[in-house]
Structures are given as structure tokens and as C-alpha cells.
Design a binder for these strands. Structure first.
Lengths: 208, 208
DNA sequence: CTTGACACGTCTACAGCGTATACCTATGGT
DNA sequence: ACCATAGGTATACGCTGTAGACGTGTCAAG
């Protein structure tokens, strides 16, 4: 059932994955699903849990920074394979045991690295949803007319209204080629982990 | 109308802010709303825009790090005053002109600080939704029985299943007192901004 | 003064949603 | 032989977003 629901969500998205459609896919009535889950929330929890348990556990003996990076990158590859996972994570309200276990494992990696409970706590907050390997697209990709004349006019107007956006879009190394989401994710993740490491070395504490 | 919708959302949450209920609050039919907005998405966009324009613009002449921090902190105070804003941001799919202008202003702050387009680009991705001052709660607050005996037993069991979580929860400076979300937010934001500054000083570039 | 456009509202209707309640039936342990 | 239980069905309720047709009151142009 979870498998069928996940397959459906892969096809039509999470929003369209209604109880009735999942049931249809199984050749069954919608109400039959309620013999197995309490409600739709629980169904989605289950779908997500299936993904979470498939996140790789990094090899033993790695430095904590590498282990943390590896586990989160694996989370990313798992979540990226299923577009609905991002929506699912963002709408989740309670943590299932599977989710708790994943978070526990991340904290354990940091504890094993010798980080203080204080720092681990702050680090988890700083990672936030990034610990699931996801990031929302924040940068706009405005639709411009294809006609080259109109396009130039639209761009010009856009440039006066949003100069910084245009400057960024036109002068970034891979301008036009679209941007490499994986690279952006790795950049931000490394920035955070490097920050944690630096604070750890400095003996940082939240109380001053 | 946007005001009424926002007021309703403050009371009952965004999910419960249906076209009919907004219309009711205005003493009008649901369909009347469609003379002003194309659909519910657009209504929510409008509600959000009202908030975004009220984000403070930092004083001129501040160093870019401080200006960036100030603007984002202001965003946080605006968004935090309206619980539905977080949900709204997370479900938004296209950027309105107001939203574009806000993002443009953040980038402008960094450009003014001399950061390269490359770095600005990566920084915006790294900030991600944090640029709106929001962060999802990621740390679980499991409900434990109030009865002290049962409570001890539950905690013990929890501790063997999720040792790192318990270790963190019990040995963090403000254990038990709940955690200060604003402080956590500031920590993560500063970590990122400090990272940007460091990379900027080093003359960082994404091409190696 | 008339006419017609338009802004802005209503009414009705439809398809879809999650899910409560009641009912049926095959299976398997006592 | 019995009966509880797991797992299915049928029906129904209240809710959702929104399409389409139908008024009106206001206001500018002929």
C-alpha cells in the first residue's frame, strides 16, 4: 500500500495522491485504506519513512565532518529521486520513530566527533530542513518572451526594477546554463559544517 | 479583502482560510472574491505581499553583514507575528514582484559590500528560506506521561532507542526550559553570514 | 437623455476531498 | 462448533475550489 501510494505520488504528485486514487490503484475502496492507517497524514508519514530508512549509513571510522556530509548527501539523493518527498517533509508535523532515529544518528555522528551537546543542538537547528537534503528553490526564473525584440525590451525593464537580480543572473560563471542545484546544496552544507568545526575547535559555548 | 483574509488566517490558520470563510467574514459570497483575485493562490500571494512590504529597510551606511542581518531579522519579526506566513511561504510556487524586490534588495546589500556575483548567488541559495526569517522546527519534543513513574520508564526506554537525542536534551545549557528559537535563528544566520564574509575575504570563486 | 460597457455582486452547480458509521464476510484460534 | 477479528464495501456528510450564467448600480460616450 505504501509502495502503491509512493508510486502514485511519483506520477501525479503528493497533492493529487488522494485516498481515493491510492485505493483505486490498489483496486480497492478508499475506506479500505483506513483499516491500515488512521488518516492521510499517517499514510504520508509511512511513505516518508520508507524513504528515510533507505538513507545510507556512512562507513565507520570517518571523521565526523565527512560522516555528517555523507549521510546528508545520501538523504539528498534519496529525496531527490522522489519530488513529493520535499512537499511531504515540509508538511509533516510530528516526527515518526524512523524520523527520530535519523535525527538521532546525525547527532550521534557529532557527539562521536566530540562536539558539545550545546553545539550539537545549535547545529541541528542550523541544518534545519537541510538535514533532509532538500532546499527550496528561492531564485526566480522569470519567464521572458521568446521573441528576441520583446525579450530585449522585457529584460531591459526587468533590469531597472531588479538590478541586483539581473546582475547576478548575467554575470555568474554559469549564467544561462541554469544553476547546478547539487553544487549549491554542497556549498551551503559545507559552509555550515565548516562553521560547526571551527566553533568546535574554538571551544564555543552558547553561554558567554 | 487581503486584510480580512490575513485577520482570519491569524485566527484559524491558513489551511482553514477558505474562500468561503474569507467571503463570510466580508459579508459576501465566495464567488465575489474571484472578481478581485484569480484564485486562492493569488489571494495568498497578496496576503504575503502585504507582509513582505512591511519588512524594514536597514539604515544606509551599515556594513553589508550588518545590513543583511538586520533586514533578515526584520523579516523574521514580521513573519513570526503571523504563524500562517511560514506555511504560505513554503507553499508558494512563483515569486510575485514584491517578493522579487525583497530578494533583489538582499542581493543589492551584498553587491554593495563588494561580493562577487558568484558568491552572491551561492549565498542566496545557502540562505534559502532562512532569508524569510523562518526555520522549521526540527527537533522533536516527544510527549511524555506526566505521572512520574511512567515518565521515568518512558524516558529510560527513549534513552536506549535515541541516545543522542536524550543526551542533547538533558545536557544542553537550557535543558528543560525549552529552547530559544530566536537565539537559534540568530546563531545559524550569523554562521552563514560569517561564512560568506570569510569566503569574500579569501577571494573565493566557484570555479577552481 | 439614452445607451451600452463595465465593475461587482449573486445563485446554482459540479467534481473532488477526508472520513464517520454501519454493514458484510472469510479466516483462524479456542 | 463457535465466535472474534481482519479487512473489505456502501453510503453519506460537510467541506473544498471554482466554472458559468445571471443580475445590478455607476458612469462615460453618443
Amino acid at each position: 500500500m505504501l509502495e502503491a501510494a509512493a508510486a502514485l505520488a511519483d506520477e501525479v504528485g503528493l497533492e493529487a495522491t488522494s485516498m481515493r486514487r491510492v485505493a483505486d490503484a490498489l483496486g480497492v475502496t478508499a475506506m479500505a485504506l483506513y483499516k491500515h492507517v488512521a488518516n492521510r497524514e499517517e499514510l504520508i508519514d509511512g511513505m516518508l519513512d520508507r524513504l528515510v530508512v533507505s538513507i545510507d549509513v556512512p562507513a565507520d571510522g570517518l571523521p565526523w565532518e565527512q560522516a555528517l556530509r555523507a549521510r546528508i548527501r545520501s538523504a539528498r539523493s534519496v529525496m531527490n529521486a522522489h519530488p513529493w518527498a520535499q512537499v511531504a517533509i515540509e508538511t509533516r508535523t510530528v516526527a515518526s520513530p524512523t524520523v527520530l532515529a535519523y535525527m538521532d544518528s546525525l547527532m550521534a555522528i557529532m557527539f562521536d566527533g566530540g562536539l558539545s551537546a550545546d553545539l550539537v543542538h545549535h547545529a541541528m537547528h542550523a541544518l534545519s530542513t537541510r538535514m533532509w537534503g532538500i532546499t527550496r528553490d528561492v531564485l526566480p526564473t522569470p519567464s521572458v518572451p521568446t521573441d528576441s525584440d520583446l525579450r530585449a525590451r522585457a529584460m531591459a525593464e526587468f533590469a531597472t526594477t531588479y538590478p541586483a537580480i539581473v546582475r547576478m543572473a548575467t554575470s555568474t560563471p554559469h549564467a544561462g546554463a541554469g544553476c547546478d542545484d547539487d553544487a549549491e546544496f554542497a556549498f551551503a552544507l559545507d559552509l555550515l559544517i565548516d562553521g560547526f568545526a571551527r566553533l568546535h575547535e574554538e571551544g564555543w559555548s552558547s553561554v558567554r
